[in-house]
Design a protein around this nucleic acid. Structure first.
Length: 404
RNA sequence: GGCGCCGUACCCAAGUGGCUAAGGGAGCAGUCUGCAAAACUGCGAUGCGGCGGUUCGAACCCGCCCGGCGCCUCCA
């Protein structure tokens, strides 16, 4: 299998998973291998400026030529030296000097360069590609917090060293998803993939994806978050509240807008709070709290009376704010035709999943039973549906709706 | 050994010097309902890992300590 085939396979798998999570594609996805010329040029600049030096076929960045080294990760060179656990390459002038270009050993993939055949050091491709596509200074650089040192520290050193300009204006470092408060890792055996979450979910992909998003956004990006079935279920419950509300907003009701004015004002407050939360270092938990508060207000307003126009307006507001987070975009949480035939964990509920048609039949039978006041039969039918995870909600007008 | 992140109610989780410590989930009670579900109303931390200190005032600042996690290495 070629290198190209391997990367393509995994890149495509990544796209599939991200799509299910509702992550939009980036406008540009540059590859290091397509920027070798930019990389070579950047390394050459650093050599010319005396911030790098050659050793055999390698080129190293000389950290003590960049005085601000360690500023991002709040470390200083002395601490780092003391902590070095691994044998230092004796050819380097300073233990923390890092490779900009590595001469290749026979059989390794390599590209030509003024220093002989080799490959880019880790870090340098990020600087080269950022400069190429975003300019020498750009606004936001993201990444996991494990990359703060050495990767981002080195990116800054080599970029600023070359340009004498600021590199990224803001750094956004996210905490990790953990399992039982531990980092996910293969060696700990607590490793699983997004794909597996979708496969094991008892919900359709669209619902699972939204549950995942809600869960991920319910904690601040910088903090750690612990993944568990329970946390996903809580996200589902929280989202249910919104979609139940949307159902009610959709129902036509002759009532007039006694609460229109109040809800209108609540909507304005929500927007203000939501925007303020997002502007405060992407405080998504607070943004969600604002949406939840509006949900409560809207439910209250429904009790008091909302005009059809106001109902549409509120739904639109949820949609407009939700799109920022990639939430609340579907019309309803209907589960038509896409309920997977999967066995969930407990033997009790491994019974086959009901199709929409089967549900409709049972629902009609129950309504008929209700009409003839045969509540025993009606309850029996409901219990049957409940055993398949289906909840029925009777409406005042005598009709019913169901959900999983 | 160095550096960093985290420790807030039963669970999740905002808040980082001053209004009653957001919000969600779970729970309990009530209204509504044939029964449910949903919704609504009410209940829930005199206290924010512990101990000191600064301050008129601290979850929030400072110090020490305890606990969890991560980085400090080749590779990404």
């Amino acid at each position: 299998m070629s290198c190209e085939q391997v990367t393509t396979t995994y890149i495509n798998a990544y796209y599939e998973d991200m799509e299910k999570l509702g992550v939009r594609r980036a406008t540009l996805e540059p590859r290091a291998t397509e920027h070798i010329a930019d990389i070579v040029r950047l390394v050459d600049t650093l050599l010319t400026k005396g911030m790098a030096y050659r050793v055999d076929g390698d080129v190293y960045f000389q950290v003590d030529r960049y005085p601000a080294y360690g500023r991002l990760s709040k470390r200083n060179l002395d601490d780092l030296q003391a902590g070095a656990r691994v044998d230092v390459d004796e050819r380097k002038r300073h233990p923390m000097d890092f490779a900009l270009w590595k001469g290749s050993r026979p059989g390794e993939p390599s590209w030509d360069s003024p220093w002989g055949p080799g490959r880019p050091g880790w870090h340098i491709e990020c600087s080269a590609m950022a400069m190429r596509h975003l300019g020498e200074t750009f606004d936001i650089h993201g990444g996991g917090m494990d990359l703060i040192f050495p990767h981002h520290e080195n990116e800054i050193a080599q970029s600023c060293g070359a340009t004498d300009k600021e590199f990224a204006r803001y750094w956004v470092h996210n905490g990790f998803v953990q399992i039982n408060h531990e980092k996910m890792s293969k060696s700990l055996g607590n490793f699983f993939t997004i794909r597996e979450i979708f496969q094991q979910s008892e919900w359709p992909d669209t619902v699972t994806g939204e549950m995942m998003r809600y869960f991920l956004l319910s904690t601040h990006y910088r903090g750690p978050l612990d993944f568990s079935d329970q946390s996903l279920k809580e996200a589902k419950s929280a989202l249910n509240g919104f979609y139940d509300l949307f159902e009610r907003l959709n129902e036509s009701d002759p009532s007039h807008g006694a609460a229109d004015q109040l809800l209108q004002e609540a909507t304005v407050r929500t927007r203000t709070a939501f925007v303020a939360a997002m502007e405060d270092d992407l405080n998504t938990p607070n943004a969600l709290a604002a949406l939840q508060t509006l949900r409560g207000e809207a439910n209250k307003a429904l009790e008091a009376g909302l005009s059809g126009e106001m109902r549409r307006m509120v739904r639109q507001e949820f949609r407009a704010l939700g799109v920022v987070l990639g939430l609340l975009q579907t019309d309803t949480w209907r589960f038509k035709g896409q309920v997977p035939q999967r066995a969930s964990g407990d033997a009790e509920s491994t019974a086959k999943t009901l199709s929409d048609e089967e549900i409709a039949v049972k629902l009609a039978a129950r309504l008929a039973a209700k009409k003839s006041k045969n509540y025993t039969l009606a309850d029996q039918l409901r219990a049957e549906l409940a055993s398949h995870g289906i909840t029925i909600e009777d409406r005042p007008d005598g009709t019913s709706r169901w959900k999983r």
